[in-house]
Amino acid sequence: MTQIGIHGANGRMGKQIELCLLDEKNANLAMLFNEGDSYEILFEKSSVIIDFSAPSGTKNLLEFARTSPKPLVIGTTGLSEKEKELMKQASSLMPIFYASNMSLGVAVLNHLAKQASTMLKDFDIEILEMHHRHKKDAPSGTAMSLAQSVAEARNLNLQSVRISGRNGIIGERSKDEIGVMSLRGGDIVGRHTIGFYENGEFLELNHTATSRATFAKGAIKIALWLNLQNAGFYEMNDFLGI
């Protein structure tokens, strides 16, 4: 039986994972970890650790894990490039899975977006993400992952072409511009739309999450899979085999 520790247990996702583990036949809850708890006990009790904390919490987790390697599933959003690099360095010692979104549907959306970006090379690309009023980072990590994927498909540098607001801009939309816009309000769990627009037609791909359980169940499935992997850095395409 896989023993799963939850790092960032007081957060919305941590609580949802705790609930979903009650119905999981192949895993048990090993420990609920919050700031101030003992990393030694967390790592001793857990077969694999799922992290939905904050960037500072993820950094602390990775630094301790380097002294006591353990499979880590990381879903924290808002990570800096330095923190992502720390994660990749630590993966030489243990299996580490990272995704800004644990939904299998979003993974397929990302895959389709890459294909559409290549096939519809003259179409303008716009990405819109909507989340609840309490979400702390914007744009969402998922929106940024989508933007990175379509930019790479067109051999573009995302930093050079991304627009996340048009207030005060004078002039037409540039050919390679990729818009990434955010809306916040109410209790929206998550909605992502990536649109491809051309004169006379457009195509929009949508994914809507109606429950946080979607992400929690995905994280648990990934944790069970990761516990069987060798040291290395894994992403959703590795899990799905695409």
Rank of each mutant, 00 (worst) to 15 (best):
K84Y: 00
L86T: 05
L86Q: 10
K88I: 02
K88T: 01
Q89K: 03
S91K: 02
P95F: 03
I96K: 01
I96N: 01
Y98P: 00
A99Q: 06
A99M: 07
N101D: 11
S103G: 14
S103W: 08
L104A: 14
G105R: 05
G105L: 13
V106Y: 15
L109E: 11
N110S: 15
L112A: 15
L112I: 15
A113K: 05
K114Q: 15
Q115H: 09
Q115S: 09
M119S: 09
L120M: 14
L120D: 04
D122Q: 03
D122V: 00
F123A: 13
E126R: 04
L128R: 11
E129L: 00
H131I: 10
H132K: 13
R133M: 13
K135E: 09
K135W: 01
K135G: 01
K135D: 06
A138P: 00
P139T: 12
S140W: 06
S145D: 15
L146T: 05
L146K: 06
S149I: 09
A151P: 07
E152P: 05
E152S: 15
A153H: 01
A153G: 00
R154N: 12
N155P: 02
N155Y: 07
L156H: 01
L158S: 09
L158D: 08
Q159L: 13
V161T: 05
R162S: 03
R162I: 13
R162H: 00
S164L: 13
G165H: 13
R166K: 14
R166M: 15
R166E: 15
N167Y: 13
G168V: 13
R173Y: 11
R173A: 12
R173P: 06
S174Q: 14
S174R: 11
D176T: 02
E177G: 07
E177A: 12
G179Q: 04
S182D: 09
R184K: 09
R184C: 03
R184S: 10
